[in-house]
Protein backbone atom coordinates (compact mmCIF):
# COMPACT_ATOMS: atom_id res chain seq x y z
CA UNK A 1 0.00 0.00 0.00
CA UNK A 2 1.23 3.50 -0.85
CA UNK A 3 2.40 5.69 1.99
CA UNK A 4 0.46 8.63 3.36
CA UNK A 5 3.09 10.82 4.98
CA UNK A 6 2.00 13.67 7.19
CA UNK A 7 3.17 15.78 10.09
CA UNK A 8 2.23 14.87 13.65
CA UNK A 9 2.60 17.96 15.83
CA UNK A 10 2.69 17.44 19.56
CA UNK A 11 1.26 20.62 21.08
CA UNK A 12 1.82 19.21 24.57
CA UNK A 13 5.57 19.32 23.91
CA UNK A 14 5.83 22.54 21.87
CA UNK A 15 7.18 25.48 23.88
CA UNK A 16 6.90 28.03 21.04
CA UNK A 17 10.67 28.46 20.53
CA UNK A 18 10.26 28.89 16.72
CA UNK A 19 13.32 26.69 16.08
CA UNK A 20 11.36 24.72 13.44
CA UNK A 21 10.27 27.91 11.66
CA UNK A 22 13.68 29.56 11.67
CA UNK A 23 15.71 26.45 10.83
CA UNK A 24 13.48 25.88 7.79
CA UNK A 25 13.74 29.52 6.75
CA UNK A 26 17.49 29.43 7.14
CA UNK A 27 17.97 26.07 5.37
CA UNK A 28 15.99 27.19 2.32
CA UNK A 29 17.37 30.77 2.42
CA UNK A 30 13.87 32.25 2.26
CA UNK A 31 13.27 35.98 1.77
CA UNK A 32 12.68 37.98 5.00
CA UNK A 33 8.88 38.00 4.80
CA UNK A 34 8.57 34.35 3.80
CA UNK A 35 7.92 31.29 5.99
CA UNK A 36 7.32 27.66 5.07
CA UNK A 37 6.46 26.82 8.67
CA UNK A 38 4.83 29.07 11.24
CA UNK A 39 4.47 28.87 15.00
CA UNK A 40 1.38 30.52 16.45
CA UNK A 41 0.00 30.80 19.96
CA UNK A 42 -3.30 29.05 20.62
CA UNK A 43 -6.17 30.32 22.78
CA UNK A 44 -5.54 29.38 26.39
CA UNK A 45 -8.92 27.69 26.80
CA UNK A 46 -7.84 25.00 24.34
CA UNK A 47 -8.47 22.00 26.59
CA UNK A 48 -10.80 23.29 29.28
CA UNK A 49 -8.30 24.39 31.86
CA UNK A 50 -6.03 27.33 31.01
CA UNK A 51 -2.82 26.32 29.22
CA UNK A 52 -0.22 28.24 27.28
CA UNK A 53 0.02 26.38 24.00
CA UNK A 54 1.66 26.84 20.63
CA UNK A 55 1.15 25.12 17.34
CA UNK A 56 3.63 24.72 14.52
CA UNK A 57 2.06 24.39 11.06
CA UNK A 58 3.37 24.05 7.52
CA UNK A 59 1.91 22.53 4.37
CA UNK A 60 -0.62 19.88 5.34
CA UNK A 61 0.04 17.77 2.24
CA UNK A 62 -3.72 17.38 1.87
CA UNK A 63 -5.45 14.35 0.38
CA UNK A 64 -7.33 16.73 -1.93
CA UNK A 65 -4.95 19.67 -2.36
CA UNK A 66 -6.77 22.85 -3.38
CA UNK A 67 -3.47 24.32 -4.60
CA UNK A 68 -3.07 21.50 -7.11
CA UNK A 69 -6.53 22.03 -8.57
CA UNK A 70 -6.18 25.82 -8.71
CA UNK A 71 -2.76 25.95 -10.38
CA UNK A 72 -3.17 26.71 -14.12
CA UNK A 73 0.23 25.36 -15.11
CA UNK A 74 0.10 22.07 -13.22
CA UNK A 75 3.06 22.99 -11.02
CA UNK A 76 1.75 20.88 -8.14
CA UNK A 77 2.03 17.11 -7.94
CA UNK A 78 1.15 14.69 -5.18
CA UNK A 79 3.78 12.00 -4.83
CA UNK A 80 2.95 8.37 -4.13
CA UNK A 81 3.99 8.90 -0.52
CA UNK A 82 1.43 11.74 -0.20
CA UNK A 83 3.84 14.70 -0.28
CA UNK A 84 2.50 17.65 -2.29
CA UNK A 85 5.41 19.09 -4.28
CA UNK A 86 5.48 22.48 -5.99
CA UNK A 87 7.62 22.68 -9.12
CA UNK A 88 8.91 26.25 -9.12
CA UNK A 89 10.29 25.88 -12.64
CA UNK A 90 6.76 25.74 -14.01
CA UNK A 91 5.23 28.40 -11.73
CA UNK A 92 4.19 31.68 -13.42
CA UNK A 93 3.42 33.49 -10.16
CA UNK A 94 -0.37 33.89 -10.58
CA UNK A 95 -0.81 33.30 -6.82
CA UNK A 96 -4.07 31.39 -7.30
CA UNK A 97 -2.78 28.49 -5.17
CA UNK A 98 -2.29 30.87 -2.26
CA UNK A 99 -5.89 32.04 -2.57
CA UNK A 100 -7.30 28.53 -2.91
CA UNK A 101 -5.44 26.94 0.02
CA UNK A 102 -7.62 27.17 3.17
CA UNK A 103 -4.40 27.30 5.24
CA UNK A 104 -2.72 30.06 3.18
CA UNK A 105 0.30 27.81 2.81
CA UNK A 106 1.76 28.81 -0.60
CA UNK A 107 3.41 32.21 -0.26
CA UNK A 108 4.77 34.56 -2.89
CA UNK A 109 8.52 34.91 -3.29
CA UNK A 110 8.91 38.58 -4.28
CA UNK A 111 12.41 38.04 -5.66
CA UNK A 112 11.76 34.95 -7.76
CA UNK A 113 8.19 36.19 -8.43
CA UNK A 114 6.98 32.62 -7.93
CA UNK A 115 5.10 30.76 -5.23
CA UNK A 116 6.84 28.77 -2.54
CA UNK A 117 5.76 26.19 0.01
CA UNK A 118 6.90 23.39 2.31
CA UNK A 119 7.91 20.22 0.47
CA UNK A 120 8.32 18.14 3.66
CA UNK A 121 12.02 18.25 2.66
CA UNK A 122 11.35 15.33 0.32
CA UNK A 123 14.88 15.51 -1.06
CA UNK A 124 16.15 14.81 2.46
CA UNK A 125 13.55 12.14 3.14
CA UNK A 126 14.52 10.39 -0.10
CA UNK A 127 18.10 9.97 1.19
CA UNK A 128 17.02 8.86 4.64
CA UNK A 129 17.31 12.20 6.43
CA UNK A 130 14.62 13.92 8.47
CA UNK A 131 12.99 17.18 7.40
CA UNK A 132 14.81 20.19 8.84
CA UNK A 133 11.95 21.20 11.16
CA UNK A 134 11.73 17.68 12.59
CA UNK A 135 15.47 17.47 13.05
CA UNK A 136 15.89 20.87 14.69
CA UNK A 137 12.97 20.80 17.13
CA UNK A 138 14.62 20.56 20.57
CA UNK A 139 11.47 19.04 22.07
CA UNK A 140 10.93 16.47 19.32
CA UNK A 141 7.44 17.90 18.95
CA UNK A 142 7.21 17.32 15.19
CA UNK A 143 7.23 13.88 13.63
CA UNK A 144 6.65 12.47 10.18
CA UNK A 145 4.07 9.69 10.32
CA UNK A 146 2.82 7.31 7.65
CA UNK A 147 -0.88 7.58 8.42
CA UNK A 148 -1.60 4.45 6.41
CA UNK A 149 0.54 2.53 8.91
CA UNK A 150 0.00 4.36 12.17
CA UNK A 151 -3.03 6.10 13.62
CA UNK A 152 -1.85 8.05 16.67
CA UNK A 153 -4.15 7.22 19.58
CA UNK A 154 -4.70 10.81 20.66
CA UNK A 155 -4.17 12.57 17.31
CA UNK A 156 -6.75 15.15 16.25
CA UNK A 157 -7.04 16.80 12.88
CA UNK A 158 -8.30 20.19 14.01
CA UNK A 159 -7.19 22.85 16.46
CA UNK A 160 -8.47 26.43 16.89
CA UNK A 161 -7.35 28.74 14.02
CA UNK A 162 -7.08 25.67 11.73
CA UNK A 163 -9.55 25.70 8.79
CA UNK A 164 -12.26 23.05 8.44
CA UNK A 165 -10.43 19.80 7.50
CA UNK A 166 -13.38 18.57 5.41
CA UNK A 167 -12.40 21.03 2.65
CA UNK A 168 -9.08 19.51 1.57
CA UNK A 169 -8.55 16.65 4.04
CA UNK A 170 -5.16 17.71 5.43
CA UNK A 171 -2.91 14.91 6.65
CA UNK A 172 -1.45 16.86 9.59
CA UNK A 173 -2.57 15.70 13.02
CA UNK A 174 -2.04 17.26 16.42
CA UNK A 175 -1.65 15.96 19.95
CA UNK A 176 -3.40 18.31 22.33
CA UNK A 177 -1.97 19.23 25.73
CA UNK A 178 -3.38 17.36 28.71
CA UNK A 179 -5.79 19.43 30.75
CA UNK A 180 -4.25 20.66 33.98
CA UNK A 181 -5.61 19.50 37.31
CA UNK A 182 -7.54 22.10 39.26
CA UNK A 183 -7.55 21.76 43.01
CA UNK A 184 -9.61 23.68 45.47
CA UNK A 185 -8.93 24.27 49.07
CA UNK A 186 -11.83 23.07 51.16
CA UNK A 187 -12.02 26.22 53.27
Amino acid sequence: MAKKLGFLVNIERCIGCHACEISCKSFYQLEPEMRRRRVTELPEDLVGTPVRAFVSTACNHCDEPACKNACPVGAYTKREDGIVVHNQELCIGCQMCGKACPYKVPVYNPVKRKMDKCSMCYERLDVGQLPICVEKCPLEAIQIVDYNEVQPENGVSIVPTFADPSITHPTTQFILPKPGKQTRRSS
Binding site: C71, V73, C91, I92, C94, Q95
Partner: peptide, 14 residues
Protein backbone atom coordinates in the same frame (compact mmCIF):
# COMPACT_ATOMS: atom_id res chain seq x y z
CA UNK B 1 -0.90 40.15 -12.20
CA UNK B 2 1.55 37.38 -13.05
CA UNK B 3 5.04 37.15 -11.62
CA UNK B 4 6.19 35.99 -15.06
CA UNK B 5 3.94 37.52 -17.76
CA UNK B 6 5.99 36.07 -20.63
CA UNK B 7 5.27 32.57 -19.36
CA UNK B 8 1.53 33.20 -19.44
CA UNK B 9 1.10 30.80 -22.36
CA UNK B 10 1.74 27.95 -19.92
CA UNK B 11 -1.52 28.80 -18.12
CA UNK B 12 -3.46 26.42 -20.36
CA UNK B 13 -1.48 23.34 -19.26
CA UNK B 14 -3.74 22.25 -16.41
Amino acid sequence: HLGHPFAAYRAILN
